[in-house]
Design a protein around this nucleic acid. Structure first.
Lengths: 155, 155
DNA sequence: TACTGATATTCAGCATGCTGAGCAATGCTC
DNA sequence: GAGCATTGCTCAGCATGCTGAATATCAGTA
């Protein structure tokens, strides 16, 4: 392991770098302006209407201090609505707006295309295997980051 | 591909997140204060004394505007020296200092350990395969990011 | 009910990464 | 050798991520 280019940590950074670039390029070509992080948050809010920010962060493994800014931008773009939650004035309820639903529907082909492109150097079976290995490594390392994935029932 | 958790882009982000957390934890335990990005830059400067910033950025696939801040911090920590280059006053020559050499030597076990830990969910052969697949995917997607890897001869 | 601990959110500060622009120096070309 | 494109570097601005801390609220208990 004499070279950084053989270290999984460096490869992780590099692959993520490419993945983000491909995502942004595809999404912009499709006429949208949304980051990978914003997309994941929007999709999660769509799937779990009324969710609060901490729970949302847990579902997609974002830090709780990061989710604030991400939701801010989604609200500013009019894709998500943020209201005080009845029964717990600490929390904010998040709901996708009509514009958010339209964006999510319209952007999906570009997102799917991006996933193909970032793996274009691999065969189909290699791509599947890479996804499997990443999921396995991530599952084992989940608790090691400050922002672990927390399924709704993990508590 | 209905769920973000099956998308390679999301997995890339998550794996990178864990990799950084593991790296920082191991390095701090060893008594050092260096980020993964700073480590890669320091190692590259050590391997290529007198390198300029743009070439350094190409070797480790950093954006040219990012490398400025990274080198700033390495210089501030006394690990790297930055001098004007003779023969081309635009460029800055980078050299590792004695303190930088000591740090690099001392930190290596922690860096190696971190690489093991971030893959601890995988068998040895799975870990090798993950590295291989990442390298293959990265090689194919290299040109897609603003900061591609540029080997010294690639020009 | 007052106290204590936990929880949801936010903020300040720092380190990547990127886009786009600007500056200074270089090198090629006519 | 003057003009101009190129190159090396930097800066402003924005979007993640993180640490650590503050604020407000809630929940359980003495």
């Amino acid at each position: 392991m004499k070279d950084v280019h053989d270290m999984p940590g460096h490869l992780a950074r590099r692959f993520q770098q490419i993945a983000v670039a491909v995502f942004l390029a595809e999404v912009e070509d499709a006429g949208y302006d949304l980051t990978p992080v914003q997309y994941a948050a929007l999709a999660a809010v769509s799937a779990s209407p009324g969710i609060d920010q901490v729970t949302l962060a847990g579902l997609i493994a974002y830090d709780r201090t990061t989710i604030t800014g991400v939701v801010d931008r989604l609200v500013q773009k009019g894709l998500v609505a943020r209201h005080a939650k009845r029964g717990d004035r600490r929390a904010r309820e998040l709901k996708i707006t009509d514009a958010g639903r339209r964006t999510l529907r319209g952007i999906t082909p570009a997102v799917e295309a991006a996933q193909q492109i970032m793996l274009r150097g691999l065969t189909d079976s290699e791509a599947k295997e890479l996804v499997r290995l990443l999921q396995k490594a991530i599952a084992a390392g989940n608790a090691l980051s400050r922002a672990p994935l927390r399924g709704t029932a993990t508590r």
